[in-house]
Amino acid sequence: MLTLSQVNAGYGDFQALFDVSLDVRSGEAVAVIGPNGAGKSTLMRVISGMIPAFGGSITMQDVSVLDTPAHQIVGMGIAHVPENRRLFARMTVEDNLRMGCFSPQFRDRYTERLEFVYQLFPRMRERRDQMAGTMSGGEQQMCAIGRALMSDPKILIMDEPSAGLAPVIVQQVFELIERIRGEGLTVLIVEQNVKQVLKVVDRAYILEAGTIRMEGTATELLESADIQKAFMGM
C-alpha cells in the first residue's frame, strides 16, 4: 500500500536518511524502531510532505507521494499523528477534531466521522468542549489520534506516540493502538519503546543512523538476541 524506495532526506546540508526502503501492506501494522537520532521522525515527515526528499520515491497505492503537494497528501489517505501530539492547545477538542476534517472532500462526512471517533474514544465526547491543552497527556494522545482518524485514512502514521508520557499512560496508548488495529486500519508507527511496540505490530524495521539495518516479523525481532541487547537492556 505504502512503498518507500531508496529515500534520501534531511534538513539543508544535513542528511538524515540514506536509501531507506520499506513497504506497508494493506491491513498490516508495521513499526520502525531505533535509537534517538536514527532519523525516525525525519522518515515520518518526509512521508507526509513536511520536508522534501533529496531523492528516491514514495508511493501510496501506486500514486507518487513526493509529487503531491504537502497539503494534499492527507487526501490520499495518509494521516499523520505528529510527535508530541501537536494539538491546537487553545482550541476545544471538537475544534481540533474538526481540523482533521478540513479538506473539502472530507467535510460531507464530518458528523459520521465525529461519531466514529467518539465511539472509539468515549472520553473525547465527555471532553468535547474542553480546551485541548488542558487535558492529560493520554487524553491528548487520544485527541491527536482522533484528529487523524477524522479523514477516514487508509493508513495512519504515528510518530512516537508514547514519547513524553508517564509509564501508566504509555500502556494506555498501546491499548489505543490495538483498538485502532481492531478497526482494520493500516498502521505505520515509529517508536523507541521497542518492547511494547513489538507486541502490537506485525512487522518491524530497525533504523539506525539513517539506514535500515534489519527487518523481520515482530516475533522474530522480539526473540532476536541482538535486539534484546541493543534495545531492551537484556
Binding site: S48, G49, M50, P69, A70, H71, Q72, I73, V74, G75, A79, H80, P82, R86, F88, A89, R90, M91, M99, G100, F102, S103, F106, R147, S151
Partner: peptide, 13 residues
C-alpha cells in the same frame, strides 16, 4: 497555534 502541522490537516498555508 501551530504553523508547521497545518499541511497535515490538509491546509494549504
Amino acid at each position: 497555534q501551530d504553523r508547521e502541522i497545518m499541511p497535515l490537516m490538509g491546509v494549504d498555508t
